[in-house]
Design a protein around this nucleic acid. Structure first.
Lengths: 335, 335
DNA sequence: ACAGGTCGTGTTATCGATACCATAAACAGT
DNA sequence: ACTGTTTATGGTATCGATAACACGACCTGT
């Protein structure tokens, strides 16, 4: 239980001032090469570990970026988060992650907690926030990026796509291939705003094309995944036999639905077309492969990361960015 | 660009000392209820945001827990991380997450970075670390937990299972059902230590049971997932036709393998049994369902979380814990 | 030779909260 | 009445690094 080594101790050991040690630890610090080498070797010998907390307080730069995502077990956001993390960590930034559990109230508490850490920027998944959340973030006066959506009233920067528009090509594709009686499988509640937007997109596009109103089939409360897709089909099999296409809110749900269809003796795509959303691995590996919408989740993460790094280093115009991620229909054998 | 509100400003507004404001913000702070209410309302009115950085420096408590995992897109660790995060955040602890990319050198750099933030504890996935990593962590003098493994020489606490032992029942099950010519599909390199341990477990158990040495089929470098399982089967189809069981390093690989088998006209389990590992959603939703090993990934996370919270609050004996997570064979229709 | 520049280093004050101790008031027990 | 205890609050020093400024040594060009 000896007391921890501080910068001062290293300085004394080398015979320089703490300031010189400080500079030796900064990548761009103006120190003589020889001095730096001596400092670093002494630091290593003494077991000195740089204290970011003190540095942060004095310099007012935390190196933190706060990130909120709806759910950690939703594979949808894993890719985005991973690529975002990769971009940021090379710039020496550390993510503070929190999950909102699809609730604006939870998001509010989370944002309050995160802001106490003085992040240099904040990334929010989605665009629906409580009034207080908006206020806290505005007052924090740091860059904000909303991702995975196209908000009407953005808080700051936007890197995402319209979930409603992204799914329209699916409806058109189904209509073009002669499918008329559509169904939509998604979460029952309205907590998953992106899922809800997709549902609205489906309904609207079907109306525009003069198709009958799609049947809405609930897969239970968000987040929904494979088992929920399977259960939704099992629970509504009679209705589903009357349809000729099932539009699912995600590839996971689509896969679950397809697998239950197989169990029920329905042939995909012969008896029923099934589509997903998100272009996840499962879509290209399942049989049949799933018709889906590629939203480039990795792209969202890496774009956000590089943009943020440029912004924080002052290399980028800080005026609000609205970046629309290009989404595309990817045909599989399920439709 | 007005200057930020500090505790002192709130104190002045209410007419108390900063110390009282400080206490009003602590859950257990001894302040008059009325005073606290006045302080909090003033804080809210002025837009004061508590500054954890300063608090941390003075009190020497950061509220951080450092966590390293091999890969963020490996679904294996998502459940563990999610439940761990849930337990910790209710206790007001914030995770600092880093991914090691399955490399000890990357882990070393990561640990160095994370320790600078002065975490109150560190959680490492796996048990293979560089000498320098071990040294840094030992010197940091904070609780360490190694998860997802059973290290021979633990750094501190252990919450995990033996990957080699966990997969033995799979081999026994296959032997009992008359399968003799086994194959193992996993990552080619030795970077994924847990995958390697499973392979060794398969080889050893096969030898004990007097079975011929299982064929080793590479699915490429770690991390491996569905597409790699499918490709491994496609690339080695001639060899695989001679086998009667395929033991895969994970459910994802097993699913990919099964789907390629279907494409190749091989029937599972008729022509070939296929098994996975991890008991992920895909195992119970795919058809056929996959025989797998349930390792309770969620359990690992929540156990680690509650243990850590108890430890940091001094409610638990700090002597090294070695917790063996019970694993179990879960039969599916794929074998 | 000298003004003006760069480079490496030291001195001092400070970032914003809180540990530690002191104090005053209220109240109980003998 | 006096001591001891509890509760609510304030004053001061401090956590460990660094921004800002100062300074001397060494260039470099005219």
């Amino acid at each position: 239980m000896k007391k921890p080594v501080r910068m001062r101790d290293v300085a004394e050991a080398v015979g320089v001032s703490p300031m010189t040690v400080s500079r030796a630890f900064k990548p761009g610090g103006a120190v003589d090469d020889e001095t730096r080498a001596k400092v670093l070797s002494a630091a290593n010998r003494l077991g000195y570990v740089f204290d970011s907390t003190a540095s942060t307080l004095r310099s007012q730069r935390t190196g933190f970026v706060a990130v909120t995502i709806p759910s950690l077990n939703n594979a949808n956001f894993a890719d985005t988060f991973r690529t975002l993390n990769d971009s940021l960590e090379t710039a020496g930034l550390q993510i503070l992650l929190g999950s909102t559990d699809y609730r604006v109230k939870t998001e509010e508490k989370l944002v309050d907690q995160l802001l106490r850490r003085r992040p240099e920027a904040i990334v929010l998944t989605g665009s629906h926030h409580s009034e207080r959340t908006r206020e806290m973030i505005t007052r924090a006066d740091i860059p904000v990026i909303e991702i995975w959506d196209q908000p009407e009233h953005p808080l700051g920067h936007v890197i995402g796509f319209s979930n409603a528009d992204a799914i329209r090509p699916v409806v058109r594709h189904l209509a073009e291939t002669g499918r008329k009686k559509l169904g939509f499988v998604g979460a029952s509640d309205t907590a998953d705003f992106r899922g809800r937007a997709r549902r609205l997109g489906v309904l609207d596009e079907a109306a525009r094309l003069g198709l009958p109103t799609p049947a809405l089939i609930s897969a239970g409360p968000a987040p929904v995944s494979m088992v929920h897709g399977a259960r939704a089909v099992a629970d509504n099999i009679a209705d589903i036999r009357k349809l000729d296409a099932l539009i699912c809110v995600s590839d996971q749900v689509a896969f679950g639905a397809m697998s239950e269809c197989a169990r029920q003796g329905m042939h995909v795509p012969g008896d029923l077309a099934v589509t997903g959303f998100g272009a996840f691995e499962i879509a290209s590996v399942s049989s049949p492969t799933i018709t889906t919408v590629d939203v480039q989740s990795s792209e969202i993460g890496s774009l956000t990361g590089t943009f943020l790094v440029d912004l924080l280093q002052g290399r980028t115009d800080p005026s609000p960015l609205r970046c629309r991620i290009r989404t595309s229909l990817r045909l599989g054998n399920s439709s």
